[in-house]
Design a protein around this nucleic acid. Structure first.
Lengths: 209, 209, 209, 209
DNA sequence: AATGAATGAGGCTTCATTCAT
DNA sequence: AATGAATGAAGCCTCATTCAT
């Protein structure tokens, strides 16, 4: 890892001392994200990334250990962001149905706002080094479990039907979410909010007892 | 495509005159499918494919025009099979809810039975040549439209809720289906029939008015 | 060599027993000549040749030993034809200046009529097997010597200037002839006869004492 | 062309700051020239070139875009050099016959001094990419036109015969020149100066009215 | 912090040729 | 006389990465 321990990943736009920090690093991450989403990880060369970011290879290898490391940083950023947002909804007050509806809508809106991240996520996951792959899956599992707990809570309270495994409901719903990258287009008839509302409605309705 | 007009694609195991036809070609397709699902299209080398099939590269290029062509043939086979099965359910007699439930269950069962095809489908679609890519998407769209028509029919008849675009319901459901490859495991607690039933139930329930 | 001894090479259109002989063989030679002239020997594949001739590879290897053999046959045909024609002019009656002028014109006309042969000749000569290469050069040398003898005869008789080696005059002239393939075009302003006359005039004029 | 705009081509041996510049690039060009002349473009592998230059393939692709690019650079260098020399003679003072004789001798001497370039020129021209091919032909045409203008000038002044198209005289003469690579040998009886004088004499004599 | 030359391994593909039929 | 499946070698090129500066 290049001069940055795990967990230190920064989001684009983070500021330190009031000025944009490490603009080269951020530009590399941004262009890599765009290109990986467009062409796939294996079909994007380091040369293309650095050219898009307006630097040379040396610069990239100064900030990242490898091309794999670049991908890993993208995953880390996405995972952290999604978990943060889910926690905010799950920890809120109010009926579980409302909290689940809110979380479901939010994940759709966030996904639509970062469609490139979403495209990369499942398409390129298998390219990660085994170790990294395991970490990402584990983190992803924790995310699913947090979401599943909301379903379980609703089933226990009797507001959701209990004859379908909560685990499967989560997989069912996130399948739909992850697939947004395949069909959703920002210029289409629906914006993220609208798709989010529909998806959340479908989820809640499917759980009606 | 090498030496074989569109529509002539053969499924593994097709027999002509009672004997296995073109065993080399079939072996290549089978091994390519397995490896593409396991490692991804870009990370699988032609050398690995022909080694797994027990032939030389020359043999592969005798039957296929390119590595891309191999991928394309896999897609063609999957598309044809899925459309055939959907038609069988959609064209049946009976209430639309039953027909939709049947089709939904079937696509899950078929997907689970050919999980490698499913893994390849969305992960590698963007590697197809632009022309081929367009063809595959068009064929896929026709499939979705057939499915959507069932939803529309139910909405018109008043047995399904009408406040959610049928198009989106289809995307919602197929997102879940295509994601089976990410989490479903044959040795897990549920078999294909069970997952299919749950998925179909969730779909139908989510459409309750 | 495939069932045909050296010296047995036949020209396109040769007839045996009143019917076209071996049309497949002739078609292969004709298409190979055309393609070698167009793309060069190395850049033309056997597959392209047989496809153009409307047969398969097996057929080609039935009539010819190898791709090299095909090229060799083309050379043999050209060499035989040119020597025949030169002899006809050189052996004629009349002043040496007229005989040289006639031979010079004729070689230009013949070259222009078989421009493909001419293009191949020098461009692909170095692709011949060493043995064949030596044979072709030797045959070519005999041709040059026959031509040179006319120049020598004229110099001895005092009708041509004698201060330039006859050998070099021949190289000078045939350089011009062999280069016709580079610039001559049948649809251009001059036909073969006209170019031939000009070339012969230039040659004779350059030899004026 | 890699990393080098048109017109920036450097000749082997160019010096910058008193030291040989880009020795690897120059070595690659030199070895490629030698091998292309010896075996032909298509029969020379990139592997052979880099081995002869003592570097790896990667190095070659660092300096050149492709094997074709290498060939193109060789052409560019030859074209520039020849045009420069022709201009020097054509722009000189004195009778047109002297200037033409001088230019004719010079092109022969230069050709003999760079026989490899000459061998490559016409044998491999058709291997250039269509675009590059057109450029090279256009540049070549400009060269011919410059030469032709000298002939036209002499015809207008009445010192050259006017009954033969000047264009054709040029083709006639350069055919001879380009063919030097086929027969001239440095160890032969005549040196470049001598051949040049004979060629120029033949040309001027052939143009006598 | 960043460059750019250079490596070395590996990728996809083409091709002349053979051989059983 | 001719086919077409299959081989095996070789070809061109790309790429992630290193290293001296």
């Amino acid at each position: 890892m290049a001069r940055r321990a795990a967990g230190e990943h920064r989001l684009t736009g983070d500021r330190v001392n009031g000025s944009l920090e490490e603009p080269v690093r951020q530009r590399l991450l941004a262009e890599a994200t765009r290109l990986f989403a467009q062409r796939g990880f294996e079909s994007t060369s380091v040369q293309e990334i650095v050219a898009a970011a307006g630097v040379t290879k040396g610069a990239m290898y100064h900030y990242f250990d490898s091309k794999d490391d670049l991908l890993h940083e993208i995953y880390a950023r996405v995972l952290r962001l999604q978990m943060e947002r889910l926690n905010r909804f799950a920890d809120a007050q109010g009926p579980v149905a409302d909290r689940l509806h809110g979380a479901a809508m939010d994940v759709v809106v966030t996904t639509v706002d970062n469609l490139d991240d979403s495209k990369i996520f499942f398409r390129s996951m298998h390219q990660l080094a085994p170790e990294t792959y395991k970490n990402v899956r584990a983190e992803r599992r924790r995310y699913h479990e947090r979401f599943r707990d909301l379903v379980v809570e609703g089933q226990r309270d009797g507001v959701f039907r209990g004859d379908i495994p909560a685990e499967m409901v989560v997989d069912f719903f996130f399948g739909s979410v992850h697939h947004l990258g395949t069909w959703y287009h920002p210029d289409g008839p629906l914006n993220g909010q609208e798709v989010g509302r529909h998806f959340a409605d479908l989820l809640l309705n499917s759980l009606r007892p």
